[in-house]
């Protein structure tokens, strides 16, 4: 299955991916309309930094043995046939066990606080391909076949 991989040696920590993620999942037709919406929409990819100039964008790894899926008490998290971990918002009861168990911190409460959210490789919006990959200015985020 094609997954999103981040090349740490190329990631600049500019955080454009976070904003492109927010835009892709906002339903808005222009990016500048995100103005003032910080907090209303949260990115599903997060750049981790350390002071020694190491940056690394993290989003769902779509683990083979996805611990979040196992932990979900409501059956909201599941794996597709291809192996993508998906969340059904309507089933999510907001217990956030998945948030606690995810070893990557790649699932987080959505801005409304009622359900969890996670990267679904932009299959749940109108982009068709991961927006963070498309707009990474340094080719640090790639979408390719690979094993975890």
């Amino acid at each position: 299955m094609k997954r999103i991989y981040v090349k740490e040696n190329r990631c600049l920590g500019c955080r454009l991916c976070e904003w492109e993620c927010m835009y892709a999942n906002s339903g808005l037709d222009a990016m500048f309309k995100l103005k003032g919406k910080q907090g209303e929409i949260l990115p599903r990819i997060r750049v981790e930094d350390n002071p020694e100039d190491i940056h690394f964008a993290v989003n769902c790894r779509h683990c083979k043995q996805a611990i979040c899926v196992k932990s979900c008490i409501a059956g909201a998290l599941s794996k597709t046939d291809e192996g993508m971990v998906v969340i059904d918002k309507n089933k999510c009861v907001g217990c956030f066990t998945c948030v606690l168990v995810c070893p990557y911190g790649a699932i987080m409460p959505a801005a409304d606080g009622k359900a969890a959210q996670k990267c679904m490789l932009c299959t749940d919006n109108d982009r068709g391909e991961p927006n963070c990959v498309k707009y990474c200015p340094n080719g640090a985020i790639v979408f390719e076949e690979g094993d975890l």
Partner: peptide
Amino acid sequence: GSRCIECRVCERQ
């Protein structure tokens, strides 16, 4: 100002 979303990419770059 009407287009700036305060993403701070300019600041970091």
